[in-house]
C-alpha cells in the first residue's frame, strides 16, 4: 500500500543525486520545448497582433480557425504530422519521422494557435485610441503598432506561458511522431508513460516531479516578470 511513499522517496533521491538518465531526459524535454516555443512565438505573436489591428475579408473565418486550433486535441496534430512525415507521405523524403524535428513540428502546430489567440486578445484589450493618438503625434504606423504591442505585453507573456505549458506536458503527439526512442526522442512525458507501464513507478514519479517543477518555475518566472512589467514606469 505504501508504493506511493516509497516511489516518492526514491524519486527525490534520483533528483537530488542528479541521476544521469533523469537529467538527460529533462534536458531533452527543455530542448524540444524551447525550440518549439521560440518558433511559435515568432509565428504567433505577430500574427495575433496583425489579426487584432487590421481588417480584411475573411478575418472572422480565419479567427474561427485559430480558435479551433486552440482547442485541437494534440494527438490529432500528432497524427497529421506522422502521416505527412511518413516515407509514404508527402514529406517522406526528408526522413524526419521518429526524430526531434518531427516532435518540434507537432509542438509548434499545437502551441502556435494558442499564442496567436492569446496575443490577439491581449492586443484587442489595449485602448484603441492609443494608436490614433500616437499617429496624431507624428508616429509612423509601424511605431504606433509597436507601442500598442508593448502595451499588450502582459497578455502576450501569458500566452507564451500557456504555450510552454501545453508543449512541455504534451504526450500523445510526441509519442506518435518521436517514437519514444531511448537517448534520442524520449522526453519527460513519454518516459513517464513507458516507466509506468514497466512498473518502474519511482523513476516515473521522479520524472513527474521534475515536469511539475519545470512548469512551476516557468510560471513563477513569468509571474515575477509580469508583476514588474505591469508596474507603471
Amino acid at each position: 500500500m505504501n508504493t506511493f511513499v516509497e516511489a516518492l522517496l526514491e524519486a527525490l533521491r534520483l533528483i537530488l543525486t542528479l541521476d544521469p538518465v533523469v537529467v538527460e531526459i529533462a534536458l531533452r524535454s527543455l530542448q524540444v520545448t524551447a525550440i518549439a516555443l521560440v518558433i511559435s512565438a515568432v509565428l504567433g505573436v505577430p500574427t495575433g497582433a496583425w489579426l487584432a489591428l487590421t481588417r480584411f475579408p475573411g478575418k472572422r473565418l480565419f479567427t474561427a480557425f485559430i480558435y479551433t486550433g486552440m482547442g485541437m486535441p494534440p494527438v490529432v496534430a500528432g497524427l497529421a504530422v506522422y502521416l505527412l512525415l511518413s516515407r509514404t507521405g508527402p514529406l517522406g523524403d526528408l526522413g524526419w519521422l521518429f526524430s526531434l524535428r518531427a516532435m518540434v513540428i507537432a509542438q509548434v502546430i499545437i502551441a502556435t494557435p494558442l499564442v496567436v489567440g492569446v496575443s490577439m486578445s491581449a492586443v484587442l484589450a489595449v485602448d484603441p485610441s492609443l494608436g490614433q493618438q500616437l499617429r496624431a503625434l507624428g508616429a509612423t504606423v509601424f511605431q504606433s503598432r509597436l507601442a500598442v504591442l508593448a502595451e499588450a505585453r502582459v497578455g502576450v507573456i501569458v500566452g507564451l506561458v500557456a504555450g510552454f505549458g501545453s508543449i512541455i506536458s504534451e504526450v500523445g503527439a510526441v509519442m506518435l511522431v518521436g517514437g519514444n526512442i531511448d537517448g534520442r526522442t524520449r522526453v519527460l512525458t513519454t518516459a513517464i508513460v513507458l516507466e509506468t507501464r514497466k512498473g518502474n513507478f519511482d523513476l516515473a514519479m521522479a520524472l513527474g516531479i521534475i515536469l511539475l517543477g519545470l512548469s512551476f518555475l516557468a510560471n513563477l518566472v513569468m509571474a515575477l516578470g509580469q508583476g514588474r512589467l505591469s508596474e507603471p514606469s
Partner: peptide
Amino acid sequence: ILTLSLLACAAPATPPADQ
C-alpha cells in the same frame, strides 16, 4: 522582438541532437 527573431533564425541552424 529582435532577440526572438534572431533565436528563430538560429533555431533551425542549431541542429537538434538527432541530426
